[in-house]
Design a binder for these strands. Sequence first.
DNA 1: CAATAACCGAGACGGTACGTCGCGTCTTGAA
DNA 2: TTCAAGACGCGACGTACCGTCTCGGTTATTG
Lengths: 203, 203, 203, 203
Amino acid sequence: MSEGKTPDAGRRSERSHQAILKAVVELVGEMGYGRLTIEAIAARAGVGKQTIYRWWPNKGLLVLDAFAALMGDTAPLPDTGDVVADMKLVLRATAAELCSPRFEVPSRALTAESQLDPALAKQFVDTLLRPSLEVTKERLRVAQRAGQVAAGVDLDVAVELLVGPLFHRWLLRTAPLTPEYADTVAEYALAALRPPRTSGSAG
Amino acid sequence: MSEGKTPDAGRRSERSHQAILKAVVELVGEMGYGRLTIEAIAARAGVGKQTIYRWWPNKGLLVLDAFAALMGDTAPLPDTGDVVADMKLVLRATAAELCSPRFEVPSRALTAESQLDPALAKQFVDTLLRPSLEVTKERLRVAQRAGQVAAGVDLDVAVELLVGPLFHRWLLRTAPLTPEYADTVAEYALAALRPPRTSGSAG
Amino acid sequence: MSEGKTPDAGRRSERSHQAILKAVVELVGEMGYGRLTIEAIAARAGVGKQTIYRWWPNKGLLVLDAFAALMGDTAPLPDTGDVVADMKLVLRATAAELCSPRFEVPSRALTAESQLDPALAKQFVDTLLRPSLEVTKERLRVAQRAGQVAAGVDLDVAVELLVGPLFHRWLLRTAPLTPEYADTVAEYALAALRPPRTSGSAG
Amino acid sequence: MSEGKTPDAGRRSERSHQAILKAVVELVGEMGYGRLTIEAIAARAGVGKQTIYRWWPNKGLLVLDAFAALMGDTAPLPDTGDVVADMKLVLRATAAELCSPRFEVPSRALTAESQLDPALAKQFVDTLLRPSLEVTKERLRVAQRAGQVAAGVDLDVAVELLVGPLFHRWLLRTAPLTPEYADTVAEYALAALRPPRTSGSAG
DNA sequence: CAATAACCGAGACGGTACGTCGCGTCTTGAA
DNA sequence: TTCAAGACGCGACGTACCGTCTCGGTTATTG
């Protein structure tokens, strides 16, 4: 999914490919990203180191691939007609995922590594993050058409208003990431986006 | 400044101490945090490796110290009476700092490293981040007393509502961090925090 | 020429065979035997590695084949009737060959490799060395019949007496290998082999 | 004894130094020079690889050092007054040593490696070979003064006449290296060197 | 006013992992 | 079947740094 060059993908050993991704997931869970080693991955996967270096340029993109394989494709959001309720659902789900043991370690690792490697950052955002933000944005667009979100609002900003606070708290660990917090953020953010009350209209 | 134990501060060579912090700042700028090496720091500072290991437990805390020395103490915020204007100032300043070449590399490095090292994370947040958020919170408290912010608002959440979106955009590089964006975020966030209009009262 | 087994000589690509031997000669000259690589040979010859492994069991025997192809078949020695003069010719020719750039590198390589690989040693001696020593021995046999060499002399020892000193000096580089040295050795060696003077006889 | 550069010999760990030489001797015996590995040496010696690379530039010189440590200093030859008898002793001893299991493997290895590495060759000859040849040459000089060797003889050539045949047979394995062969070579070589019979003198 | 104990620079040490090279085997598709 | 091409598992290379450990050589009190 994310290997930069594909010398001859037809010849690639699918068995090795899968074994490597599996080993990465296992090892990142066992020892964390910092202690993760190409040699250990190769050993666990029963693969030569060169086979890893042949297909991935660095540890970051390898972990990204392994992590991407873990996540299913982004599902579209439910639309109950109530944006606030729907956004609460989204943020609660996001918070839960960020704290789930399976996702937390690689998410933090990829976020961290992205700070040191802009190429990885781009790949990470494009592959994993943007699609997920996009479905939220889509839901907001519907809300905007329905008049629940003010017409002039830049929806990218709107999404950041919803997700940014959660992300800030998660990443900097300033406080626990509870479902209640998710609800609060959703309420505040959507309050900010609500169109101004006009006399004679109903929200 | 942040070393946990001070075996015998009287004997500590201030010359070496400063040379190390200076070397760290220089080298982190030249080669980035990832390629930063204790050996290189020692060589640049003209110092034995042991002198570094004696006073700092790891690279992260060393960089934190060096970075903290770069930043002056947190100054209190101006209070013009207009929260929105004041917050725009704060966010614009924050955005500018995050993008300034002097601060960007170590900020990203510390944020990244904090993901892999909770001890560093705590130190980072307590030393550098919290004080900065605290002054913002203080200004909001004043606004709350003045009735510009709703009475029931949790000010920690309020601060995150303001800072989170900026931080999200900076860290994930989803879009450029402009002063206009800072203004927009400030407007939206404070709109969300404004007390509900009561008949017969003025905002 | 010297491959042990010939799985199916009929199918063997003569074009590839020659390209490989040519590549070996070139590369051994360019980078020496130690840095010679099967992969480099294959690349230079425009040949798959397997084609080399199919026909030669190891690098040593491959170089031996390539070197043997370089040397013509051993020519019989001239017989002027004067053993000493003839042997001087032989030793001067030997010395010249050992020092010629074309032969020196592979000769040293094969001698060296033979120390670590007895199978190669045998092949090397039988294919290249023994025939060359044999013609010298033959010339000495003639001299022995003519009474110029004592009757009881073991001709194998005689040959070693002639060739050994040259070889020793060449291999260990204790001193330069000049034609004069060849002459001196020939004189001494044949002096040792001369039959004892009997009263009333002439040498 | 043969390390090229001595960064700071005072700080060198003698324990490690000795352990390395010991490991080399053991391993060269167990697996031969060709299969000898720096990693294996380091492991066996309980030493980091860098400690080997720090003090020796390559495998050849390391083995040379280890081998030199094995051999005592060259003892002077006995002088019984009978050159032939003395030389027989020398050659028999040389033959025995070349075939002794302890010396054969490293001797062949160093001879072989010297073919590919002139620097090693020089060191090898100067350190181990030349001193040994020199004592023989010295004994011959005495014989020359005593009139047992012709006055005009170049003693370097004389030594090669004695040692060359043995060396040739040993290195190329053309025939077994027996004590009898050593005797024969000594007899022939000294016959060649004997001064011409002058009337009225006795040999 | 020595002495004595810390800290200092330097850098060797036992290790771990790196990213590369080349081995000899195996697989694929064309001739 | 052989061949060119080249991926594969593997093992070793030589290097970079890690964090620890001596070394002497300053300091800087303190008995």
